[in-house]
Simulated scan of single mutants.
Amino acid sequence: MNDAMSVRTELPGQTDAGNAGMIVVFDGKGGVTGVGGLDSEHIMPQRGFMLISGNSRSPAFKVWLNKFVGPFNADLLTVPNTRSRCTVADDRAMVVMRVVRPGAEPHDIGRQLLTMRIERGQVIVASELNIPELLGVGQWQQTQHAPVSPADLVARLALRASDRIEPLVEALGNRLDDIEEQLLFDNDARVQTRLAQLRRDLISFRRLIWPQRDVLTTLEVEDISFFSGRDRMRLREASARSARLGDELQTLSERAVLVHEQILDQRSEQMNRNMLVLAAVTVVFMPLTLITGALGMNVEGIPFAAAPWAFAAVSGALVAIAAVLVWWMRGRRWL
């Protein structure tokens, strides 16, 4: 790699979706020595490295990648991928992660791909995301706390991606708390609909988090010569952050299952109570129906058929029988 590279000068932080790309040069000691476009010149410090970022949909950036890394590698960086992965070959790593887009909501976590080519002295990132803004390059220029190696830069990218997900995971937890609280007072179809939507959101988040953890773990354990012990520690820290979020999502999923089981138990209990009431009504009215059916037969010999007080007496007897049956079932705790 040459010490000087030709890139078009731009002001820091001006890169957006429409520009070809940006180069950021790090001195390897925590400082940023240069920020510019793809056509201006920068001097690479002896221990330094550079970040090359651009919009994966920008034709200009694709043309630049074809010249800089070749058509095959340019396609690997810019062709959309369906899943997160980490591939290591020839002392280089190709990493694909899915990052939550800015302003995403828990029920609509639009994902954006972040594809990186990591090698000694440089990291190339192709994404629709504004990478310098995501990383906070402008702040690093002032604080002198920039990454000191390519692996450190990748770890910080993963941590920034986790920072975007964490408040969304917290929002999912708050939604589950609201559902549990609402179940104490009301168990209608709206609660069940909200719970079903929440469980779908949790599944989507888990599909986003767990592969990212696996990608970072794979990158940490691979035999890449320019990764130091500190680099692997930083990658392990980023992987642990993703794992913690994944564990929190797993806990929320288990709580959601328990809430769902609680809803089913309440519904089953209510159904059993209704069936018990119907059975009690049947037990009470069965002897009454037998008596009234017998007295209602249109045959000779019905007792008290001509007595004017017979109807009142039979009605009173039926009420007494019903009261005795209800008292008996309550005594046996059937009601």
Rank of each mutant, 00 (worst) to 15 (best):
T15V: 14
G37K: 06
M271W: 02
M97D: 05
R194M: 00
S84Y: 08
G54T: 01
T9S: 08
R236L: 09
G246M: 04
L288N: 09
H260C: 02
A307I: 04
S56V: 12
I263L: 14
W309H: 07
R194N: 01
R267F: 03
G110T: 12
F304I: 08
P211H: 13
V25W: 06
T289R: 06
A60T: 10
N73Q: 14
Q141P: 02
T251M: 10
D16I: 04
I179W: 05
M1D: 13
R101E: 14
M286S: 15
I23L: 15
D188T: 00
V259G: 08
E105A: 10
R255Q: 13
A280N: 10
E105I: 01
L195D: 06
S268H: 12
M44P: 05
D177W: 04
D265P: 02
D265T: 14
G301K: 09
Q270S: 15
D188M: 01
H107C: 03
E222N: 09
P80N: 08
Q139P: 00
P102I: 09
Q122K: 14
L198I: 04
I124M: 07
S40P: 05
R230C: 10
R267L: 10
A322H: 10
I165S: 08
R206Y: 05
V35G: 04
T33L: 09
G246N: 07
I131S: 04
R98W: 11
F68H: 15
G316V: 15
R200T: 07
L258H: 11
L129Q: 06
D231R: 00
P71M: 02
T193A: 07
F311Y: 15
F304N: 08
M271I: 07
F68V: 06
A89Q: 15
M233V: 03
F227C: 09
V191P: 00
L295C: 02
D27S: 08
E166T: 15
G36N: 11
I109N: 02
L51T: 00
V326G: 01
D27Y: 13
Q142P: 00
L264H: 11
G103Q: 12
S56T: 07
G293T: 02
D75R: 13
S127Y: 07
Q197A: 05
T115Y: 04
S315K: 12
P80Y: 00
W64K: 11
H42E: 08
E254D: 15
D27V: 11
S53W: 00
L51V: 00
G293S: 03
L202P: 01
V35I: 13
R200E: 01
N19Y: 03
G34N: 07
M97H: 06
G138H: 03
D108W: 11
I109M: 11
V24H: 04
T15L: 08
L129T: 02
V314Q: 08
P167I: 12
V281K: 06
E105G: 02
A317T: 12
D3C: 02
M275V: 10
T9A: 08
L278W: 02
I109Y: 02
F61Y: 13
A312F: 13
V137E: 07
L159I: 15
G13M: 06
V63W: 10
A155H: 03
S127R: 03
N19F: 02
P71H: 06
A4D: 08
F72E: 14
M22H: 11
A310P: 00
V69C: 12
A89L: 12
G70L: 06
G21R: 01
G28Y: 10
